[in-house]
Design a protein around this nucleic acid. Structure first.
Lengths: 239, 239
DNA sequence: ATACAGGAGTGATGCAGATCACACACCCAC
DNA sequence: GTGGGTGTGTGATCTGCATCACTCCTGTAT
């Protein structure tokens, strides 16, 4: 099998290395088999758009590897990034389940593979396997919950500092050392961070300076060291 | 049957006057029957809390009549109202489907009746009737979409004026005259409006003055007259 | 080497809204 | 009536952040 962009193609979910607690993992044998029949797979370059906000939903994408940026844009061109999706995530689920246009744009942040399941096949599949439909409902529910958290943070008029601290915290949870510090590789530009926390590039720049001066974090190149979760948590008093 | 708070109790969904396009209306005969068995009904006074943010989810409530305020509060006591629910709405669905605590507080804004379906019964019910599970998934998906809209509005840093205009528009859609104006009965305090659009009481006061001066609306007592949807729409340029 | 693009730091300025601090209007109790 | 509670109008002030306007730095294309 060809390996474009330096990636090996995974053509079978049952042998997938990231097989785990994701939505379409660990299905019954029949369901797994059926899924393999209706899915197709492809590898995308960096910058590829899996789908675009407002497009009629064609189907869902299951991300096999790589990172995907989900964003939405206002008329005047202001963008907010709502999520950075990781491998295993299912993208476009809501749009397909409810037969509405995609509500966000999904862009590959690095080369990666994704499986595609056409809308009709998926809907048929869910009718065929009620237990999967139930899991889908739970996933949607979890999505909703996450969106809610977002609303809380945004709507409770948190200051950029608070939101930035929150973001750092969410990054550090993935890899915290025993001494409370943690290292993260920074893959986002200041601009992108600004789009996540809803502020401007300049403010993010200033936040970096400020947080470094306050010994909350330090950075060498693309490596970010978050000093103390505790101090950050004090900044995020609000919920 | 007793009629507390001056309300007649509805004890059967099949004869419900608001029976229509709601989540648990128009089910199959068997499903309807089963639903009637597992639900219980009660009438609540104004101010009653159906459930509170953070509580373990006990079940869902189907609102038969009255209005319910859904809100979430930060540690420092700042509140945001995320939705005003109307009759027919199902409350607490996400929490129950995903077995997580309620993410909001639900408070009766006026006396009203609600059916209660315990968590376990509902989950069993959904397993029993896959087509209902599918509808639930769609409902959750729609909830998610609404939450999304909210995020867009909040996150794209809309000004209070924009959000206020948007709110007025959403109110006027329900009853627009041929000349583009519409009457709404105002049941919310300035404080509550502030909690919806994420600003302060004072700012809402000033918005009222400002919009009246600009001939966008007028108010006599609790009756609000929205002059021209068109003018409002111009204010809401952003998405 | 050159040049250009995309990213990052940082100062100066202005303004929208939060906040504080009142005054007033209304309703209900007693 | 008098009082208190709740909702409202509106001024004065203060400030955080957007915005504008630069410079500098790096990588990479030619």
């Amino acid at each position: 099998m060809r390996a474009p962009y330096g990636l090996n193609i995974l053509d079978n979910c049952t042998t997938c290395p990231i097989r785990g607690e994701h939505l379409f993992c660990n299905l019954s044998v029949q369901a797994s088999q059926r899924l393999n029949e209706i899915k197709s797979t492809a590898v995308y370059p960096k910058g590829a758009m899996l789908f675009i906000e407002g497009q009629l939903s064609r189907g869902v994408f299951v991300l096999c590897n790589g990172k995907v940026k989900l964003s939405t844009t206002s008329r005047e061109g202001k963008t907010i990034i709502t999520k950075i999706s990781d491998s295993g995530d299912v993208l476009g689920l809501n749009a397909v389940v409810s037969n509405v246009p995609y509500e966000v744009t999904a862009e590959m942040m690095e080369p990666g593979q994704a499986n595609f399941i056409p809308r009709d096949s998926l809907q048929q599949f869910l009718r065929e396997f009620p237990e999967v439909a139930m899991r889908v409902a739970q996933q949607l529910s979890r999505n909703y919950y996450t969106a809610y958290e977002e609303i809380r943070t945004l709507g409770l008029s948190a200051s950029p500092s608070e939101k930035f601290a929150k973001l750092l915290l969410s990054w550090s949870t993935k890899s915290t050392q025993s001494d409370g510090s943690s290292q993260v590789k920074l893959t986002l530009t200041h601009e992108e961070i600004a789009e996540i926390i809803g502020t401007t590039r300049e403010t993010v720049s200033r936040l970096f300076s400020e947080f470094k001066k306050k010994q909350l974090m330090q950075s060498k190149g693309a490596t970010l060291v978050i000093r103390s979760r505790f101090a950050l948590e004090k900044i995020v008093q609000s919920y």
